[in-house]
Design a protein around this nucleic acid. Sequence first.
DNA 1: TTTTGAGTTGTTCGA
DNA 2: GTCGAACAACTCAAA
Length: 484
Amino acid sequence: MSSPAPAIVWFRDDLRLADNPALDAACQNGRPVVAIYILETGTGRRPLQGAAGWWLSRSLRALGADIAARGGRLLLRAGDPREVILSLTGETGAGLVTWNRRYDAAGVATDQAIKAALKDQGIAAESFSANLLREPWQVRTRSDEPFKVFSPFWRAHQALGDPRPALSAPKRLLDGSQGLASEALDDWGLEPTSPDWAAGFSDWWTPGEAGARERLTTFLDGPLDSYAADRNRPDRDSTSALSPHLRFGEISPVQIWHAAAMTAGTGSARGLDKFLSEIGWREFAYHLLFHWPDLHRTSFQPRFEAFPWHGDPGALRAWQRGLTGYPLVDAGMRQLWQTGWMHNRVRMVVASFLAKHLLIDWREGEAWFWDTLVDADVANNPASWQWVAGSGADAAPYFRIFNPVKQGTTFDPDGTYVRRWVPELGGLPASAIHAPWTASPQVLASAGIRLGETYPRPVVDHDRARQRALEAFGSLAPRAEASP
DNA sequence: TTTTGAGTTGTTCGA
DNA sequence: GTCGAACAACTCAAA
């Protein structure tokens, strides 16, 4: 008896073997599997770059090893997926192609085109829900519209019941890739060489499915209990730090949901609810992206398209480099640069600082994060930036302007976080660490600090910047309907 | 159709 | 030091 025709499983933002419906479907009925990852060009999707490229490279390495350990092989090819997939079906005689869905407009359009082309050739194509708890079109208001406000969205989402059960990983894979060409990961140049700005990343991260699982376990066993309060403390390791693993699908929200619900004891109900609602915000961001596909380019509230942003290259550069003179802002921007990640509370502070203190277009900040975050996410990143800037769905009101000094004294009271990332301020006492310009000359001298030389003076004065922002934002026309 | 309650994460001021 | 109000109305989503 000859073996059945192979199935192609196309890995994208789902670099895992467990709870992978596309993989699961491909290897049913004893089918040989051809696993492929495509470095995509020509489809108009946002190019993956910078820090996320580093992560992708490491994650593909891990996935390739995991697949090999089960007897299979991960093919790597670069190009237009509409051509690569069709070429591969010709090379293999595959009768089935499977993948897990994505939700950005260019990705959806690409997938639809490929599905239609495969059907024309009599090849089955199946796509699956894998990377969200619910598909973005499943959650609707009573009047059958998409949601624009988080709380009712999340209530309606939860009212749909528990997510589907998680799938386990296939134990063995029948390799259908004999004789097929694969490119070499190193040739893709995803990891930097000179300068190697990612040199410190591997101190912090273990990309891949095993690393994701370990991170989840560590979080559930410890910080989850006090998550409701401690999640705001950048000086503590109190968040899950799962974002890059989720970004690349090394773990699924379905797996996280079940594991968290299973682990949480009665005492941590608040921590659990809060944690799951953060997963909910990710769901909401994808809901928004699916229904408002231009989310990263166009303000959700159209009136913001008329906002007089300041083009200020010097201030932008100071922000990017962590040289604004506000220690909490600078600590965050340097944590981002050195680790590819930033604590969520600090993300809000630095984003508010860019959009409100500096009046720089949120798109500049979104683009910088897109380049420097290992978790750069096509939905979360623009949705969160628009939320902070005030232009987004259910956004922060414009008069909510974070005071970087007050945020520092509240959420980093001892200055531990600032000292870790802005070492030149390390000698300051906690009373001055968030506002060095208020320290006496003696305190500065004994800490070895010369303002304007070893550490910058503030690029803007908080009170003046706040007034300026209130006036600028207050002059905006009233809100108009955002249309999908 | 109209009404109504609600709406992630803040800061400042003055009593 | 603490507390409530002001900041600004407006939209969303359900009843």
